[in-house]
Design a protein around this nucleic acid. Sequence first.
DNA 1: TATGCATGGTCTCATCTTGAGACCAGTATG
DNA 2: CATACTGGTCTCAAGATGAGACCATGCATA
Lengths: 152, 152
Amino acid sequence: MVKRVSLDHSSCPVARSLDVIGDWWSLLIIRDALEGVQRFTAFQSSLGIAKGMLASRLRTLVERGIFEQRPASDGSAYREYVLTAKGQALHIVVAALRQWGETQLYGPTERHSSLVDTLDREPVAPLTLRASNGRSLEWSDTRVIKVDAARY
Amino acid sequence: MVKRVSLDHSSCPVARSLDVIGDWWSLLIIRDALEGVQRFTAFQSSLGIAKGMLASRLRTLVERGIFEQRPASDGSAYREYVLTAKGQALHIVVAALRQWGETQLYGPTERHSSLVDTLDREPVAPLTLRASNGRSLEWSDTRVIKVDAARY
DNA sequence: TATGCATGGTCTCATCTTGAGACCAGTATG
DNA sequence: CATACTGGTCTCAAGATGAGACCATGCATA
């Protein structure tokens, strides 16, 4: 899958991240995986994605170390896709997207799924930026320090 | 810009968010805007995006309430694009992507830009999930509660 | 063990999206 | 007034996607 534009060598971690997971389907596949989906057919029916696309996406996500394929845990000869540690680390990105959607994209009467603490089933707290000492930061309290690169 | 698949009415906030900002360029445009870019030409030269794409993306992002256009602050007759509150709220998503990229996508010798506390120029702390009482949570301590929807 | 269905794909084709660049009207500048 | 910059639009070729036909293997069951 040759990409039109590649940000693979960008000095901006945001760009490089999007190069890996920034296409239309990848984060949805990862969201499902974080919720326990493992089998090809399960992804397909959950997402309504075309088979060819799903096969192609899973292949590149495996290549990029987000998923790995392993024998099915139920003893059958089929295989399943599980997130690597690198893939699991995306849970915070998915959570951030979720919280943004919840607060910005739903009307007061619309229902949506929620991420909750398993213990008390209370919604998790809104993510906040913090300084290294734990102090809460606004966006305006931060800045991006660039390394040399005219375009990134 | 008609989309092949629309998740606009999904009950999953992750899906609905991706419907708004999930394409290849939108988050990069927003990243630049968060760092102070405001003018059409500035986005174009920063991103290396085709003019037509940039015009189209900015148009839909304005339609969707992420950006607004207003007269240029320097007194010229040109206009500039600034993030709305809804758009600014995406800073946490961008920060999450940035941190994931920093930790997972760079070799030890590679340099990258960093998000720091303006005060002491120290990197911001890693984002973590927290329970409503502030207790730190692992991904495995949480679960997603769904509303009824076979496909979402 | 023969039959049939589920799984996990590949391949092709039509359609939609994107990138590159020509072109243009209005604005600033010397 | 001449020229360059800004912020677009339009077109066309090429790349990406969706739908679905087709297929090899695994599994279930009579």
